[in-house]
C-alpha cells in the first residue's frame, strides 16, 4: 500500500467560478494500491466537480463495498459520504434522492458490487431513472476479496491465477440502455481527456447517468491475458466519438475538427458536442447505440465514449410527481393534517 495523491494537482490553480480551489474537492489520502485504476477515476471526478463549480457540500457521495466503493473517502472531503453495504448503493441513493432532490448524487460502485450482488438494485435504479451519476469502476474482478472473476470479466479473459474465465460477461452499458437510462457512457480510467468531460456531461444530465469506467486492478487483473488490463484496453478501445461538454451560458468554442458534429442539449441547457468520424451512429437512438456496442464487441473492440443519451428523459421525481420542495425541508404544517381531520376519520370508522 502506498499513499497516493491525484497526480494532476496544481496548488496554484485559480479558483473556479464558485470560488472553490481544486483542493476543496479533494478527499482523504487514498489507501488503494499504487497504480490502481480507481485512483485515476477519482482524480477525474474531482476535476469534473471542480470544473463544473459545484459547491462540494451540495454533493452526496454514496457507495457499496469493495476497493472501488472506498473511493468516496478519497474525494470531496467537504461532502457527506455514505459507504453502505455490498451491492446496495442504488437503494440508499434512491432514498437520499427522494428526501432531497436538490443535491447531486454521486454513486460509486464496482463491477462485483453492481453486476453480481447488486444487479437487481442496479437494474431498478436505472428503470426508475433515478437522478444520479452512477460510476461503476470496472476491473473485471473482485479486488477487495483478492481477485476472483467478476461478472463483467470477458469470456476467455485470464486473471492472475492463470485459469481463464469461462463464463459469459455482462455488459452493463448495454443493459443500462435497454432499461431506460437517460445517459450511458464508457471510458477508461487512464483517459482523463475523455473521462472528465464525460463525467461533467453526466453530472449535468437529469436522470440516470451511468458510466462504466474500465479501471484496471494492478494487483489482481493487470495480466496480459486480461481484457481489463492497461495494455489491452489501450490497444483495443475505439472511441465512438470525441466530444466536448459546453456548460450552459458558456460560449461554444471547440477545437475538434474530425468528421461531423452532433449537439445534444441537456435539461439545464448545457450542450454536449459529439465529434464523430462516422456520422451514421446517433447517440440519441437506443437501437443504434446497442448495435454499435455489439458490432465493436464482435471485432474484439471496446467501444468508449458517450454511448447513448435521451435528453428528454424524466427522472423518478417527475415520474411519481413529488413536490418541487425537497421533502426533507417540509415540516409539521405541511405534513400533519391535524386533529380535526382525524376526528372526521374517526367518524367514518363508526
Amino acid at each position: 500500500m502506498t499513499f497516493f495523491r491525484p497526480s494532476f494537482r496544481h496548488p496554484d490553480l485559480p479558483p473556479n467560478d464558485a470560488g472553490y480551489y481544486l483542493k476543496d474537492y479533494e478527499g482523504g489520502i487514498s489507501t488503494l494500491c499504487a497504480g490502481c485504476g480507481h485512483d485515476s477515476t477519482n482524480a477525474a471526478i474531482i476535476q469534473a466537480c471542480f470544473e463544473l463549480s459545484i459547491p462540494p457540500h451540495k454533493i452526496a457521495k454514496i457507495s457499496g463495498i469493495g476497493c472501488s466503493s472506498k473511493s468516496p473517502a478519497y474525494l470531496l472531503g467537504k461532502a457527506h459520504g455514505f459507504n453502505s453495504v455490498h451491492g446496495r448503493m442504488p437503494s440508499i441513493v434512491t432514498g437520499a434522492n427522494m428526501a432531497n432532490r436538490d443535491l447531486l448524487y454521486l454513486g460509486i460502485s464496482g463491477d462485483g458490487d453492481t453486476a453480481s450482488i447488486g444487479m437487481g438494485q442496479f437494474a431498478h435504479a436505472v428503470r426508475r431513472n433515478l437522478n444520479m451519476v452512477y460510476v461503476m469502476m470496472n476491473n473485471g474482478c473482485y479486488g477487495l476479496t483478492k481477485g476472483q472473476y467478476s461478472a463483467t470479466a470477458d469470456k476467455g479473459s485470464v486473471g492472475k491465477k492463470g485459469e481463464p474465465n469461462m463464463l459469459e460477461s455482462i455488459d452493463l452499458c448495454e443493459i443500462a440502455i435497454q432499461l431506460g437510462a437517460g445517459f450511458v457512457g464508457r471510458s477508461f480510467s487512464g483517459d482523463k481527456r475523455q473521462l472528465v468531460p464525460m463525467l461533467k456531461a453526466a453530472m449535468s444530465h437529469t436522470g440516470m447517468a451511468f458510466i462504466d469506467v474500465i479501471s484496471p486492478c494492478v494487483t489482481f487483473n493487470n495480466t496480459p491475458g486480461s481484457t481489463k488490463s492497461y495494455h489491452w484496453v489501450r490497444e483495443h478501445s475505439e472511441a465512438t466519438n470525441t466530444f466536448d461538454y459546453v456548460p450552459f451560458k458558456q460560449e461554444i468554442t471547440t477545437d475538434y475538427e474530425d468528421g461531423t458534429t452532433e449537439s445534444v442539449v441537456l435539461h439545464d441547457n448545457s450542450v454536449i458536442q459529439l465529434h464523430k468520424k462516422d456520422s451514421s451512429i446517433h447517440v440519441t437512438d437506443r437501437r443504434q447505440a446497442v448495435d454499435a456496442l455489439e458490432e465493436h464487441k464482435e471485432k474484439g473492440l471496446i467501444l468508449t465514449g458517450v454511448l447513448y443519451i435521451d435528453p428528454d428523459s424524466e427522472d423518478t421525481h417527475r415520474i411519481i410527481n413529488t413536490s418541487r420542495q425537497p421533502l426533507n425541508t417540509l415540516g409539521k404544517k405541511d405534513l400533519c393534517p391535524g386533529n380535526e381531520a382525524l376526528q372526521s376519520i374517526n367518524e367514518s370508522m363508526r
Binding site: I62, R88, P90, A96, N97, M98, A99, L327
Partner: peptide, 13 residues
C-alpha cells in the same frame, strides 16, 4: 435501503 438513505438525508421514512 430507501428508508435508510432518506432518513440519513433528513426525511422521515
Amino acid at each position: 435501503g430507501i428508508v435508510i438513505g432518506a432518513s440519513w438525508n433528513g426525511a422521515r421514512a
